[in-house]
Amino acid sequence: MFIRNVEHLLTGFVFLLVGTFFGAYGLLFYETGTIEEMGPGWFPFFISLGLIVLGVIQVLRSIATTTYGVVSFEIARPIFITALIIGMSYAWPYIGAATALGLIMSGSGLLNPKYELKWFLVSWLFIIALLVAFKYGLGMSVVIWN
């Protein structure tokens, strides 16, 4: 058995993972009912089943196909930027939106060696102005400074 197309294989795994998660969780925790009187679990279960079937097909295609497909990922920078946004979102109520967003901008800017301080300051001032407009113009409930 030889995997010729990694793209099909990984796609299949994604479908299997999502399908199995929703299908199993739905089956365990929600009533399925009958087709005439569907419970809350009926529809998600059958869609999950369809997704699992498609996942199996994709895995089989990765072996049966005659075309090669490679996938290249980068892990460090995507994880860093996602973690930065998540971390600052949770810090937002404690340090204020202006500081949290300033840290998101400066942190994500670090990924680019050419990012300049003057651009950061101009962008940050713009963001603070936007926050003020949202808070006082549109009545958004937000703590700008803390």
């Binding site: 967003l101 998101i104 901008m105 994500s108 680019n112 300049e116 950061f120 962008s123 963001i127």
Partner: peptide, 13 residues
């Protein structure tokens, strides 16, 4: 390179 941090911030708002 200069724009993406501000796009992220605007999206967050």
């Amino acid at each position: 390179n200069t724009l993406y941090p501000i796009i992220i911030a605007i999206c967050c708002i």
